[in-house]
Design a protein around this nucleic acid. Structure first.
Lengths: 146, 146
DNA sequence: TTGATTGCAAAGAATTTGCACTGGG
DNA sequence: CCCAGTGCAAATTCTTTGCAATCAA
């Protein structure tokens, strides 16, 4: 199920161990949710019958982050949230009711950020933009309730 | 030193106790730094000879946040960082070397954010934008070093 | 083989909570 | 006076670490 993944791990300089392959697989197949905490990954593994320690999940996620395999986000609420890094930078808009997450990229904003960094004399390394709101789905539910 | 602060606390619905007054004062006079962790506030109080429990600092900061007196940020690194809410929204650009924080507001970005929320069907409530980089000061130090 | 990796349990850091005591209104 | 507010220590939550056992190359 993962000759490809095995190659991939070696390519980024990580030995292709079973836990790492499993974790990679969970992240790849996380589908629409795409944003998982260490705990989420751990539970997903348990549910599919794979017995990996929580400490290992944390270690591997950190290694993946350093290897550029995934990105760590600091959403509100404390825990770190991880997401596969598919190469293309993007920002997030999230629903404070249901937790839904959408991704976007806006060239104008990107450009302005660079301009601001320049203006303040910073060499920009990174940035994070989160928009918080209530998605249409949750707003729809509201109306009748009230 | 704080008849004004005392009024202020009452106005936002909080009893004007000594710890709350002291904490408010520390935040108000934090001057250029302006961004403090609970621990920072706690240490500042100890240094000026005021004996307030760390738990109380956390409790009061949370109350202040709920009362709209200050804003809680989640910068990288885990801890919450607090800042007096002077009414005007702004974003942050921070140095990953020295921790320097600058504030800015960009009308174009604000406007684009609203447009994006609209496009995705969100009712925007809030947003946070952090730009990370290396400030000119730190870059200057680099050159000779290398 | 053999050093890298894992699992578990213990350690840590940040923050919260239970509870008897204290102070503001 | 009386309850909200406080201090302290214990409890929680998330994450990291030490170390012996295990696994990939």
């Amino acid at each position: 199920m993962s000759a490809k993944d095995s190659q991939y791990l070696k390519k980024v300089g990580l030995k292709a161990t079973l836990p790492r392959l499993k974790i990679l697989q969970v992240l790849e197949s996380s589908g629409f949710a795409r944003h998982m905490t260490a705990e989420d990954v751990y539970k997903a593994l348990l549910e599919q019958g794979d017995d990996v320690g929580l400490a290992t999940v944390y270690r591997v996620l950190t290694q993946f982050e350093q290897a550029g395999v995934l990105t760590r986000h600091h959403f509100e609420g404390g825990q770190s949230v991880f997401e596969m890094d598919e190469g293309s930078h993007h920002d997030h808009i999230l629903c404070t009711r249901c937790g839904r997450v959408d991704e976007f990229i806006d060239p104008v904003i990107e450009e302005r950020q660079q301009a601001i960094a320049d203006k303040f004399g910073y060499m920009m390394q990174d940035h994070s933009l989160y928009i918080y709101g209530i998605c249409k789905h949750c707003r729809k539910k509201d109306k009748p309730a009230k």
